[in-house]
Simulated assay, not measured.
Amino acid sequence: MNARHPAPGQPRRWRPTPLVGGAAAVHAGALAALAVAPATWPWAAGGVIASHLALTAAGLWPRSTLLGHNWTTLPEQPGARIAITIDDGPDPDVTPRVLDLLDAHRARATFFCIGERARRHPRIVEAIVARGHAVENHSQRHRHHFSLQGPGALRREIDAAQTTLGEIAGTPPLFFRAPAGLRNPFLEPVLCGFGLQLASWTRRGFDTRTGDAALVARRLLDGVAPRDILLLHDGHAARDANGAPVVLAALDTVLRVAAERGLHTVTLREAIV
């Protein structure tokens, strides 16, 4: 469930969550205990280790709100609306075909783009915007160790993507999605400084791993409901037995069934209230 918080686009004050605040209190208490009674070090160390394990577990759960605000569903608004989000592009082979498919269904999507890929394929990013979709921040380089970085490195990575995508798309991103959805407690304060809102998803198709488009579509459609955020990929897309990116057939099915069920697609920006 999305907590009420300022709309994306403006820097906001960071407020630690109970888990983050509690972990900080545990660290402070451990230091105080060691200063007064050094013999308590096993208890102090145990408390610190336990707090680190809790923070790590929260960061490994992409849909968690324990480390900060996180859009896991769309905000409550009238109408049966869902969001299609597409990660890891732009891809010169897949993304143009995804755009054609969206046009055919008169659907809109949110593309979480990687800055370096956008720099290599700026015309595709421009086409995304020109055809009515939104471009958001998925980091500059999409490194697998993103969630292991400190605040300075996170800030540089996100800032580079903000600059890259803002220059090409014509407007800076309002949303951020971490690579693989993994993060640490330093991310939320950085996002607050940029006025970015973390966005994860309600359901995903695992279309970077599964070569069966029908299975990917079933995962996305099983129980799909208004306010859901669906995750697909134009970058790193898995291929079926014929070499076709599974995202294409899966997305075609999802959009067709969504329309049959009266679900309308919106970008995350259109869902801001």
Rank of each mutant, 00 (worst) to 15 (best):
W41K: 04
R183Y: 13
H144W: 13
A28T: 12
R15N: 12
I158T: 08
P151N: 11
T73G: 11
P172C: 10
H105R: 00
P245I: 07
E136T: 01
A50R: 09
P122F: 09
W41D: 00
L53E: 11
D212A: 00
T163G: 00
A107G: 14
N137E: 03
F206V: 11
I128H: 04
P185R: 11
V216F: 06
P90D: 06
G243Y: 11
A45R: 06
G262L: 00
G68Y: 10
C192A: 15
A130W: 00
A7G: 03
R219G: 10
L230T: 05
L165C: 10
E116F: 09
G150L: 07
R227W: 02
T267Q: 09
T210A: 10
R106V: 04
A199T: 15
R141N: 13
R183D: 02
W71L: 15
L19M: 08
A24P: 04
L154R: 05
T65L: 06
R4G: 07
A214Y: 13
E136I: 01
S51M: 15
P18T: 08
E270N: 02
E116P: 02
L165T: 07
P189V: 08
V94Y: 01
A217C: 07
W201T: 04
F111Q: 06
R209Q: 15
I229T: 07
G205W: 05
L230C: 07
L248H: 02
A44L: 14
G193T: 05
I168T: 03
D222P: 00
Q162S: 14
L174C: 00
P96N: 13
G223R: 03
L248M: 12
W41N: 02
D240P: 03
P226S: 12
E126G: 02
E136Y: 05
A30S: 10
G29H: 04
R239K: 14
L182W: 12
P90L: 09
A161Y: 09
T17E: 06
A213R: 13
I86K: 08
V26I: 15
A271S: 11
D87V: 08
A28R: 15
A250I: 01
T72F: 08
A217L: 12
E126A: 10
D240V: 06
I86A: 06
F176V: 03
R12Q: 12
T40I: 11
T210W: 13
T40N: 03
H264C: 10
R141Q: 06
N184R: 01
G235Q: 08
Q162P: 02
G243H: 12
A153M: 11
P173R: 08
L60I: 04
G170P: 09
G195S: 11
H144T: 13
G243N: 07
L67M: 06
G21F: 08
V246Q: 00
F175Q: 05
T72I: 13
A271P: 05
T210P: 02
